[in-house]
Simulated assay, not measured.
Amino acid sequence: MNILGHFKTITKHKLLVAKGCFRLGLYYQGIMHDMSKYSPTEFIPGVIYYQGTASPNNRERLKKGVSMAWLHHKGRNKHHFEYWIDYSLDPSKKGLVGMKIPKKYMAEMFVDRISAGKIYNGKKFKKEDPLKYFEHGIGGSIMNEASRKYLTRLLVMYAKKGEDYTFCYLKADLKRDISGYDKISPFEKTNTIHIK
């Protein structure tokens, strides 16, 4: 068990996300990001399954078959796409489907992914890492299509154009109506960026 190691890891991550959120004008989200990780339900398994280079939730899954900490976390944090999974009322779409995620939570999700990559990869972090991680995860198959495309656009932009450009784009884009995040923004048009 590594109480101090886990506390340092989640706090360092939380502060990095807060810095990114503040940069985007998302002050409340920056302050409140991942507060549930300090609750006993999430903190104790985090200590028990601490790795330092990867999420303790993955280790808990391997040991117990399920991560109770993750189930608790995803149900309380809107910056995770899993929070937005619900059953469909559309007869053509049966079962569980991804709902469209509000843009401010998409922004926090983006910052969260960048920050997690920086924390877990340390000096080995490359700006392409968050995109590669997302492409190899399950998000693409479960997320709402418009939300998935928006996050992919941000991650590709980050990989190609870097942090300053992407944060500048995202800050401007957050001022637009949420219903339009699956369209190309005026910022992209005026900066002639070509993102798939």
Rank of each mutant, 00 (worst) to 15 (best):
G52P: 01
G98Y: 04
Y181D: 03
M106G: 02
L15K: 13
D112S: 06
N191I: 07
G30A: 06
K74F: 05
R59Q: 09
N57I: 03
L174V: 02
R23S: 15
L71K: 14
K123F: 13
K124A: 15
T11Q: 06
G52F: 03
K123H: 14
Y49F: 15
Y133V: 02
I10A: 02
K175R: 12
H72K: 07
I101W: 01
D173N: 11
E128G: 04
F7V: 07
G75P: 01
R113G: 06
A172L: 01
K103I: 10
L16R: 08
K64A: 08
E188S: 12
Y87Q: 05
Y158G: 05
L16E: 02
Y87R: 06
K196G: 13
K103E: 08
P91F: 11
I44C: 04
L131Q: 02
Y83K: 06
Q51P: 00
Y27K: 15
R153T: 08
L26M: 10
S185E: 13
N191A: 08
K132R: 09
G20E: 00
D86W: 06
D90H: 08
L24R: 03
Y105Q: 01
K100S: 12
M99R: 10
H6M: 10
E60S: 02
F81A: 12
K19A: 09
I101Q: 02
G137P: 00
S115D: 01
K127I: 12
S179F: 09
N144P: 03
